[in-house]
């Protein structure tokens, strides 16, 4: 035991000093669109390589609008690596969670979109005050599960933010769902939600949970959480960075924009 304590004393502080740090240079995150002019149909590389059809070109073929749906993006990096004009680049931000599904769609030209939900510091807003208990239901993405579990480790230490993972829906405030919710997990997921007391929020973590990702539209009916439950926050990425997951839990439960105050319904479609 003494050796263990000595080793423990030798280990320095492991927790990230800054909350939601940007990813280091050269690291591939989610794609982001810039205002650099796109070459359009003559190029079309991004549309061609994207495995989930997340990117679309529209408008004037000479000077098209590019749109990119992060809710479909499996962060494969292929569009970023192939774009000759830097219209698509890697986004270093780890604050990538959003409150509304539409906010996941990015446009190369400014459009009227809802402002991204700001995280108002760590102020305690909404019904949950400073502490939330999170029940995780995995429906089949072990990478995202690992990153959710990582939020509790010494590096991210989510308990600093009042986030705790619990083993039963009975005492959970947040239902955090990972994976694409294929046929056999649809009923168990909904019954887990029904076992939770109000107020409760649902967070879709990872692109599979948002849209089914690469499994979307297949015979297993694995199209994400939305066909089964109303979702209060979306965390894109395949898998999302642990900081982004913490961000998602915080905006769903603490941001002014959250609608966690009213009881969610099923089957929003």
């Amino acid at each position: 035991m003494l050796t263990a304590l000595l080793h423990a004393a030798r280990q320095k502080h492991a927790t990230d000093a800054v909350d939601f740090p940007d990813l280091p240079e050269g690291v591939g995150g989610l794609p982001r669109l810039t205002t650099e002019p796109c070459l359009g149909e003559a190029c079309g590389r991004c549309v061609n390589v994207c495995p989930t059809g997340a990117i679309q070109l529209s408008g004037d073929p000479e000077n098209p609008d590019v749109s990119l749906d992060r809710g479909l993006c499996v962060t494969c990096g292929a569009c970023i690596a192939g774009c000759p004009t830097q219209t698509i680049v890697a986004d270093p931000s780890t604050k990538s969670a959003v409150i509304h599904r539409e906010e996941l769609v990015l446009y190369s030209k400014p459009t009227e979109t809802k402002p991204i939900a700001a995280l108002d510091g760590v102020k305690a807003l909404g019904p949950f005050r400073r502490s939330v208990d999170v029940r995780v239901v995995s429906t089949g993405c072990n990478a995202t599960d690992l990153e959710v579990a990582a939020t509790a480790n010494a590096i991210f230490d989510c308990s600093r933010f009042g986030i705790h993972f619990v083993a039963s829906p009975r005492f959970a405030d947040v239902l955090l769902v990972t994976g694409p919710v294929g046929r056999a997990m649809q009923k168990p997921l909904v019954s887990c939600f029904e076992a939770m007391a109000d107020p409760r929020v649902v967070i879709a973590v990872g692109t599979c949970a948002i849209s089914g990702g690469v499994h979307r539209g297949g015979y297993a009916d694995a199209n994400g959480v939305m066909p089964h439950l109303e979702v209060h926050a979306f965390v894109p990425g395949c898998p999302p960075h642990p900081w982004s997951i913490v961000h998602g839990i915080l905006i769903a439960t603490r941001s002014k924009a959250t609608n966690a105050n009213h009881s969610p319904q099923h089957g929003r479609g």
Partner: peptide, 29 residues
């Protein structure tokens, strides 16, 4: 079987250039 997503069928159906991303998701860890 609770996370059966139809990966094998999908791999045979998608364009070849996209298949590698589906293959990675067979067990994404």
């Amino acid at each position: 079987g609770y996370v059966h997503r139809g990966v094998e069928a999908r791999l045979a159906a998608v364009p070849l250039r996209h298949a590698r991303h589906v293959a990675e998701s067979a067990s994404s860890d």
